[in-house]
């Protein structure tokens, strides 16, 4: 179990859409232990920051992530090629999803969140649930992994421009589906605003809804408190650490406003880092 043997080499890399890349990384410990809902933290270089990414699949020797380039570190990650080695990879982290028999399950994935729901949907299906999957993106080009959900009992793709499936967003589709069908539990993973809106709907219908919070992290081991978020239950308000108490929480109880504001903590520095990076590497043609 030497570091060299773990080696974190990129085995396979494929572009799914502009700025969205599907990457398989060799790591037998993570490949063996990863469970749906868990994530890894990676560092790309010696001077790199620690960024969390959801494990989309694993096979005993390697694991898969789907990265969307949004800033310096993810641009850089997408620039790596097969054979390149990630500087640090740690995981699996976080609590696994609650996989068991729930009955009728509605699973919603938006944007790169589609990759995050893939292993959860598979596991829920294997656990005997009846699963309906809604996946959505802006256009057909952005609607990643749409051919990997064939196992679902019902698959409802949506695009904002109507280029594929239902014309509209996943929230519209969710509302229609909840009118038609009774669900015992919902999973909803995607941009924060999407998770917020779907949680509001779930609250109305009084259905538990698991969301996977993408708060800003460093260590991922409960040591820094930076990922903290406020969870408001009926009569209490408590601070929870997303990396160890989550990343999945019942979205009905998440204090979404403060959660979303905390995502913007470093906006200025992030802009600066990306500009500086692009100055150095030029046009990001690889995206």
């Amino acid at each position: 179990m030497n570091q060299e043997e773990l080696n974190n080499v990129i085995l396979r890399k494929r572009k799914l859409a502009y700025g969205v890349h599907d990457v398989w990384i060799k790591n037998d410990l993570i490949g063996r232990q990863a469970k749906p809902g868990q994530f890894v933290i990676v560092r790309i270089s010696e001077k790199g920051e620690r960024i969390p990414l959801t494990i989309a699949e694993s096979n005993g020797e390697a694991f898969r992530i789907v990265v969307k380039a949004v800033g310096k570190s993810t641009y850089e990650l997408c620039s790596l090629n097969e054979g390149d080695i990630l500087y640090d990879v740690v995981g699996p982290l976080g609590k696994p999803s609650e996989i068991k028999y729930h009955g009728n399950v509605l699973i919603i994935g938006g944007g790169v969140g589609i990759a995050a729901i893939l292993p959860i949907a598979k596991a829920l299906k294997s656990a005997g649930n009846n699963i309906t999957v809604i996946i959505g993106a802006r256009t057909i080009q952005d609607l990643i992994l749409r051919d990997e959900f064939t196992f679902a009992d019902k698959l409802l793709p949506t695009t904002d421009d109507g280029s594929f499936g239902y014309k509209g967003n996943v929230i519209d589709a969710m509302k229609i589906e909840l009118e038609k069908e009774n669900y015992n539990v919902i999973w909803s993973i995607g941009p924060a605003i999407m998770m917020k809106l779907s949680s509001e709907i779930a609250t109305k219908y009084n259905i538990p809804i698991w969301v996977s919070l993408n708060s800003i992290m460093i260590d991922g081991t409960g040591m820094c408190g930076g990922c903290r978020t406020v969870i408001k239950t009926d009569n209490s308000e408590k601070i929870q650490y997303v990396c160890v108490d989550g990343p999945e929480f019942d979205g009905r109880y998440v204090d979404w406003d403060s959660f979303i504001k905390r995502l913007n903590q470093y906006k200025e520095q992030e802009k600066l880092a990306l500009e500086r990076y692009l100055k150095e590497v030029g046009e990001p043609t690889w995206l």
Binding site: K47, G48, E49, L272, A273
Partner: peptide, 15 residues
């Protein structure tokens, strides 16, 4: 750990 005092040479920011 992350050398944020050397941002942006190091990637981790700090306020």
């Amino acid at each position: 750990l992350m050398r944020a005092y050397k941002f942006p040479e190091y990637d981790t920011p700090i306020r």
